[in-house]
């Protein structure tokens, strides 16, 4: 019998899991909107340069916790942290010496509804740098290209950088918002249901992007789509009624969750 031709298949390198390090520690965190408590005793350690997904039914506190990570909740009247702390690199971000403005430069955010500013694409990307007073044209040009490439948008918009960002499609707008966030070089990017208003193709592109970005950034994503959490995240936290129910590797959460509530939720049989 003749030996057949070797099978021409490239064996991909095994996925680099590498050593993980904790970047954000949430300890016994409690949070209220006025009299209504939204989070109860949340304990969570988030890995650097990984994607962590927060899942759970509406009103379970996942978005609240996300917004606590860059203190966006400061802007809402009557919010109280009643117990516990959040540390980033060991620093209590609600401590008296921490400036929320500086924190937000390190912990960027992408919102549910894509919110490009009604300025040109170029101005959108450099907004954060303009605020910080970066004025050098060549440096700005360089950052715009780098950020747009990072957000996988460069090829689509490089010929119309000075057209309005509002004229882009929904998926492009959301990637523009991601480019804008990474232009200020944050360490952590918070994403609040970034694909909820996008069609499947645009969603797939954003997911590709998240997968690429985790090489350089720690990403925390709130999502209502279980499949999205399963696809993009390395770890998943399931919240219910303001409490953290289960936190584990995404594969464990989706294949063999320890908690029956988690199982009911991820298999779409809740309540």
């Amino acid at each position: 019998m003749e030996p057949s031709a070797p099978l021409a298949i490239r064996v991909p390198a095994p996925r680099d899991v590498g050593a993980t390090s904790t970047i954000i520690e949430i300890e016994d965190f409690n949070f209220s909107y006025g009299a209504k408590q939204a989070l109860f005793d949340v304990n969570l350690k988030l890995d650097a340069r990984r994607v962590t997904a927060f899942i759970g039914p509406s009103g379970c506190g996942k978005t609240t916790l996300l917004r606590c990570l860059n203190r966006m909740n400061d802007l809402i009247d009557g919010t109280v942290i009643n117990g516990g702390r959040i540390r980033i690199h060991g620093v209590d971000i609600n401590g008296p010496e921490v400036d929320a403005i500086e924190l937000r430069k390190r912990v960027g955010m992408v919102f549910q509804k894509s919110n490009p500013f009604p300025k040109s694409i170029y101005e959108n990307v450099i907004y954060g740098l303009r605020i910080q007073g970066v004025g050098s044209k060549s440096r700005l040009d360089e950052i715009v290209e780098k950020s747009l490439r990072g957000a996988a948008l460069w090829d689509e918009v490089k010929d119309r950088l000075h057209e309005s960002g509002v004229g882009l499609s929904g998926g492009q707008q959301q990637r523009l918002c991601i480019a804008r966030a990474i232009a200020v070089q944050p360490e952590v990017i918070l994403m609040d249901e970034p694909c909820s208003a996008l069609d499947p193709i645009a969603t797939a592109k954003v997911e590709e992007l998240i997968h690429d970005l985790k090489k350089d950034y720690t990403i925390i994503i709130v999502t209502h789509s279980m499949q999205q959490a399963a696809r993009v995240s390395d770890k998943t936290a399931f919240f219910y009624l303001g409490r953290l129910v289960e936190y584990d590797d995404t594969q464990t959460i989706f294949m063999n969750p320890a908690n029956p509530q988690t199982e009911a939720y991820v298999s779409g049989r809740f309540g």
Binding site: I9, P12, I201, A204, K205, E207, E208, R231
Partner: peptide
């Protein structure tokens, strides 16, 4: 469009 997990399917094959 190539998806990031296409590699997993390739490994499987």
């Amino acid at each position: 469009m190539k998806r990031f997990f296409d590699a997993e399917l390739e490994t499987f094959r």
